[in-house]
């Protein structure tokens, strides 16, 4: 039985193919201005890797911020539900899921079956998501991919507030003027975002194990800051950005009566 999970993210469209609940392949394409093309591309990548045809897919479950832009699917679920399912699949003892995406972030408490018990959402403010890091890297004039490693050299001598991307930019610019070293500013940036996320964690309750997913989970600077601010170990799966698509695919299995 082959099924697909489709995650219509703000930045990327992601596809995960499952065969008998095992991951067959993944595909990803930038969302861009033409969502249909992005979906086609992501599917194409996944299908080629798995060496199966589109017609072999028995059920597609879609999720993601842009789910209404998905051209075709058989069922849909919320990102929160998808994250919870994926988390327990990837790490069976996961009970708190932190998902930091490009423009949204979520913290979810789930049970051992991957059902949602409680969650907190940040979706109206860029300061609580990956967009914050992007804007701050621009203000700091470093590449986002390099900011993480840079921040690890810092001792933590300064801080900025992450109540707002726009105010954060001003903070970063004034720190540059004060000749604060770039690696210290980088660490302050990650700490600020991590603090926002930690406050969401405390809203729902911190229950181990904690798993971090979403595109921002790949950022070593953020992962380190989150660990620091949370004071607990964090599990980061391989391919954390595919969690939503994976969770959707697991729902597709359930929709077909599988477990």
């Amino acid at each position: 039985m082959i099924v697909a999970g489709l995650d219509m993210g703000v930045q990327n469209v992601k596809v995960v193919l499952l065969k008998d609940r095992k991951i067959l392949s993944r595909g990803l394409a930038p969302s861009g201005f033409e969502p249909e093309k992005a979906v086609e591309k992501a599917f194409q990548e996944a299908l080629e890797k798995a060496e199966v045809a589109f017609s072999d897919i028995q059920h597609i479950t879609a999720t993601g911020v842009g789910v209404e832009l998905a051209p075709k699917f058989d069922s849909k679920i919320s990102v929160v539900s998808a994250d919870a399912r994926a988390a327990v699949y990837l790490h069976p003892s996961a009970r708190t899921v932190i998902d930091v995406g490009a423009e949204e972030s979520r913290v979810i408490n789930c049970d051992e079956k991957g059902s949602v018990l409680d969650f907190a959402l940040n979706d109206r403010c860029a300061a609580g998501a990956g967009a914050f890091l992007e804007a701050m890297a621009r203000a700091l004039e470093v590449k986002l991919e390099e900011m993480g490693a840079l921040s690890l050299k810092a001792k933590g001598t300064t801080s900025i507030s992450a109540t707002c991307v726009i105010f954060g930019e001003s903070d970063v610019v004034s720190l540059i003027h004060k000749q604060e070293p770039k690696h210290e500013i980088a660490r302050a940036i990650y700490d600020a975002l991590a603090e926002r996320i930690v406050s969401m964690v405390h809203r729902v309750g911190l229950k181990p194990d904690v798993i971090l997913v979403g595109g921002v989970a790949r950022d070593i600077g953020f992962a380190a800051a989150l660990k620091r601010k949370l004071g607990t170990e964090i599990v980061i799966p391989e391919n954390p950005e595919y969690a939503g698509a994976l969770g959707a695919a697991l729902y597709a299995v359930e929709n077909l009566g599988g477990r």
Partner: peptide, 18 residues
């Protein structure tokens, strides 16, 4: 618009134009 976050102004507008 549901969100006037300056950092999201672009995405918000693009979605509406779409």
């Amino acid at each position: 618009v549901s969100c006037t976050c300056v950092a999201f102004a672009r995405t918000e507008a693009v979605n509406l134009l779409r």
